[in-house]
């Protein structure tokens, strides 16, 4: 097994204010190919900063980031942007869809930018939108969709280029339970197909799909371990009807 994504002694200090604020204080993390890692922790523990840095959306203060065996934190901004198109998918709590493009084009665009053929991009878009119950919304503009629908389009878009790693920051933050169920199903499916996922979430249902849980506290990893699968077959331990 090789690490798809690796952080070595990663540090981020925000120095805009009167006092420098350390958000991430020396994180070492290796994510294997096909692994699904959930990151949890209280607000202000550095989760979002960490995942933003891993995707090159925030700059590190010190430390190293490796993607597919290549050191990326020392790349120029444009070189990293190019690499990101091919290798990273993003989904955030506040989706950023292109307003004057249809849903279908929003989803196909990253695949085309990553150099996938138009035919393959279209097929991929069709299967992703179908999986998220959005096939009939393909020709709509993002503004015509509900928040839950837009979030699902953002997830489809993030997966369109078959990224080496899917990075997500509270991807179900805006969804009701029915929309969350569609997102859960798709995440479970792509994970089963070998998609590597690193996800910040407060939602225990989403986090419980992961193989591994990393807990952050005060900018540091305080716990890193597997989520046990017991498959007992009943919910007797949790549900106790009297």
């Amino acid at each position: 097994m090789s690490a798809v994504l690796k952080a070595v002694n990663l540090v981020r200090i925000y120095s805009g204010g009167a006092l420098p604020v350390p958000a991430v204080r020396g994180v070492d993390l290796e994510v294997e190919e096909g692994e699904f890692v959930a990151i949890m922790g209280p607000s202000g523990s550095g989760k979002s900063t960490l995942v933003h840095m891993l995707g090159g959306l925030d700059t590190r203060t010190s430390g190293e980031i490796w993607l597919d065996g290549k050191r990326v934190d020392t790349l120029s901004e444009s070189a990293w942007a190019m690499l990101r198109r091919e290798k990273v998918g993003f989904v955030f709590q506040f989706f950023n869809l292109v307003a004057n493009m249809t849903v279908a084009d929003n989803v196909e665009l990253p695949a085309l930018l990553a150099g996938i053929s138009p035919k393959e991009a279209r097929e991929r878009r069709e299967s992703l939108l179908a999986a998220l119950n959005l096939a009939d919304r393909a020709d709509a503009a993002p503004a015509q969709l509900s928040g839950g629908e837009q979030q699902r389009v953002a997830l489809a878009r993030a997966l369109a280029n078959k990224p080496s790693v899917l990075l997500a920051d509270e991807p179900t933050g805006n969804l009701d339970s029915r929309n969350t169920r569609d997102v859960l199903r798709l995440l479970g499916e792509v994970h089963k197909q070998g998609q590597t996922i690193v996800m910040v979430t407060h939602d225990a249902r989403v986090a419980s799909l992961a193989d591994r849980l990393v807990s952050l506290f005060d900018g540091q990893i305080v716990d890193d371990g597997r989520i046990a699968r017991r498959r007992t077959g009943t919910a007797g331990e949790v549900i106790d009807l009297r």
């Binding site: 959930a38 949890m40 859960l184 225990a204 249902r205 986090a207 419980s208 799909l209 992961a210 849980l213 807990s215 305080v222 716990d223 371990g225 597997r226 989520i227 046990a228 699968r229 017991r230 498959r231 007992t232 077959g233 009943t234 919910a235 331990e237 949790v238």
Partner: peptide, 18 residues
């Protein structure tokens, strides 16, 4: 706390399966 959190998530995974 960390151990308990992973235990809860493993219960949650069971409920998801169920």
């Amino acid at each position: 706390i960390s151990r308990q959190r992973r235990h809860y998530l493993s219960l949650m995974a069971d409920l998801n399966d169920l």
